[in-house]
Nucleic acid binder design. Structure first.
Lengths: 166, 166
DNA sequence: AGTGAGAATAGGAATTATTCCAATGAAAGT
DNA sequence: ACTTTCATTGGAATAATTCCTATTCTCACT
């Protein structure tokens, strides 16, 4: 094995002159263990189960720290709360507009390379963001049926798209 | 000429059963005349010069209407106010992290086509968003000089990246 | 072990961006 | 003209985040 999360986190923090704290470790652990691109509030709720005394402000602080260390990426695809993603591979995001969920999408290396070439001369790249906004396609026979019984709330029981291992 | 803004706007609105109002026309006009991806507040300030009685809520309403009609795109590349873009071509955005400005970037058709292929089966695409976050690259001799005199505010006097005609 | 400096956390206040709401105004259909 | 619908306004309300301050923690040094 190359690195466990604890070591990685500790080293990255140390590299920026920062300390490894239980709060930072828990926040990072939560992001790693459930990769559903949670918001700060989501993370807060999950961490609180393990450390009830943690505050929301601290969660925001920890997330900012992790983002600054480069261990976590902040995802903003829409107005609304930022979401956090510990997947460091260059990848795209799929936003399911019906369920609100966000999935990682594999980005082939050659395509990524072509994207990099679009950056105008004179700029130094910080990040590329590629976001797909989409909704589950309704199969044809269901679409016909639905047109007779409209107005019900859209469920979220589509098969999940392929997630990348990360 | 194919269409003037007034006619286009009027037709699009009518197509959704909506009315052409002075406020909507001014908001749209402001977006068309200065394509620097202004925020709602920016638009408000500009429109106010022409129609001092307009309210911020109306600007938000008009922008939402224009987005829903498909005449304007809402751009969210970072936490902070949404920005609005009347460029309907499929294009990318370059976010200059130093100046905060956003520029349109041409997206070659074949590349756009390849991006579309990434969408997993079972989803129907609403929009693809491709964002470059970057900062002006400091030329080498300047970088050396700057390292002796640090701490000054970064200016924003780089040559602008190629903008697409739209 | 004791102390001081610098980090980090917690809790709450403050800010920002946006949305909601109720009243008024304008336009279109009858 | 009269009614209905749509749009605008201004202000209140909300959501997400940031800011501020006191307290706590950790580390380095004695």
């Amino acid at each position: 094995m190359v690195s466990d999360p604890h070591t990685t986190l500790s080293q990255r923090l140390a590299g920026s002159g920062l300390r490894l704290t239980p709060q930072r470790e828990l926040v990072y652990g939560v992001l790693l263990s459930q990769r559903d691109h949670p918001s700060a509030e989501d993370v807060f709720a999950r961490v609180k189960g393990q450390l009830p005394s943690i505050s929301l402000a601290t969660v925001y602080n920890c997330l900012e720290t992790l983002v600054n260390c480069g261990l976590v990426k902040q995802v903003n695809m829409e107005r609304g709360p930022s979401r956090y993603c510990p997947n460091l591979h260059e990848h795209a995001h799929l936003h399911d507009e019906i369920s609100g969920r966000v999935f990682d999408l594999e980005l082939p290396a050659d395509l990524a390379a072509r994207l990099h070439l679009l950056l105008p001369a004179g700029y130094s790249l910080s990040a590329i963001e590629l976001n797909f906004h989409a909704r589950p396609a309704v199969p044809l026979q269901e679409a016909a049926a639905a047109s007779h019984a409209e107005g019900q709330e859209a469920g979220a029981e589509k098969p999940a798209p392929t997630q990348i291992a990360s």
